[in-house]
């Protein structure tokens, strides 16, 4: 008896005690509710978001009275009318949409080889290097990175100094649309690589070998096998990059020189510069709507990609 007791490890006894306590706090017949309990934080979060959206929706129907700087008591569609008719908002919305699509395409094109090499290289050193190079920017943050580009691409920056060495006069590389797109692509690349890598990992190397033995050179292997099989990764990465760049604030603000605003900058102006919370809310809601529409369109056309957590579209 005594031997048996000492053979019963202390850790097991601790676990028994914990289970007993858990049994009192959360009796067995509550068990069915456990999964819902786990969902509670998520529901709370979504609930708050919905609440916020509801308040924004309310504000979006009220106009600003510049005599008192209060929103009107009565509701109207004036803000929505302004949002879709004023050339400023149309220009900015068009710029954001076109820009985010260009950024998405470029980012995917550039990120794919990076992700591919990272996943496939037999060299552990190279893989580590690529991983570190990928995560480093995450620690640095968007604003500091944009600031880095200000230093590198400025009139007296490294690039222009290098041009100077070969006799090219300094030129303005910053504060224009390409500079904003460039900054966004650079900012989005780690996200895209991170979304692409699992999709590529999921393609067995054997499959590429098989394509080779069946007569496909690497171009055709890529085109007929890797690309279609990596589609979930492309969809996931594309969605993340598209939504992030569509709603980006800092890069257009910093690299655009003030004249390359995206929607988020216009929203900021309404909330913080002209104090027109109604119009700001309207623009924000329209952005949410357009973004959701785009995402929905992609889901319908291509499926949810890696965002569907491996569920295959039937």
């Amino acid at each position: 008896m005594k031997a048996a007791r000492t053979a019963y490890p202390i850790r097991w006894r601790v676990m028994d005690a914990l289970e007993a306590v858990a049994g009192i706090l959360w009796p067995r017949f509550f068990r069915a509710g456990t999964p819902y309990l786990m969902l509670a934080p998520a529901i709370l979060l979504v609930g708050l978001l919905v609440l916020g959206l509801w308040q924004m929706a309310d504000a979006s129907f009220r106009t600003l009275d510049t005599n008192t700087f209060l929103l009107s008591e009565d509701y109207s569609l004036a803000n929505y009318k302004r949002a879709v008719t004023e050339s400023l908002f149309i220009t900015v919305a068009g710029r954001s949409l076109v820009g985010s699509i260009i950024v998405t395409v470029l980012t995917l094109v550039i990120s794919f080889p990076y992700a591919y090499v990272m996943v496939r290289t037999p060299s552990a050193t190279l893989r580590k290097f690529l991983l570190i190079a990928l995560f480093l920017p995450f620690f640095i943050g968007q604003v500091v990175r944009a600031y880095g580009w200000l230093i590198i691409l400025g009139n007296q920056g490294m690039v222009n100094e290098a041009f100077g060495l070969i006799g090219i006069a300094p030129m303005r590389l910053l504060y224009n649309y390409p500079a904003v797109l460039f900054g966004l692509v650079q900012y989005m690349m780690p996200f895209a690589v991170l979304m692409l890598a699992p999709a590529l990992t999921a393609i067995p190397e054997e499959i590429e070998a098989a394509a080779g033995s069946l007569g496909a050179d690497w171009v055709r292997t890529f085109r007929h096998v890797v690309l279609p099989m990596a589609r979930p990764g492309f969809v996931g990465a594309g969605l993340v990059v598209l939504t992030l760049s569509l709603t980006d604030f800092a890069i257009p603000a910093m690299l655009g020189g003030g004249s390359q605003d995206f929607i988020a900058n216009a929203i900021y102006d309404q909330f913080f510069r002209t104090s027109d919370q109604g119009l700001g809310a309207t623009l924000a809601l329209l952005l949410v709507a357009v973004g959701s529409l785009l995402v929905g369109l992609v889901f319908t056309l291509f499926g949810a990609g890696t965002l569907a957590m491996g569920r295959v579209k039937a």
Partner: peptide, 12 residues
């Protein structure tokens, strides 16, 4: 022609 260990069929 090669038949692979995990078959390496194209799932798409």
């Amino acid at each position: 022609g090669m038949v692979f260990q995990k078959l390496a069929l194209f799932p798409h």
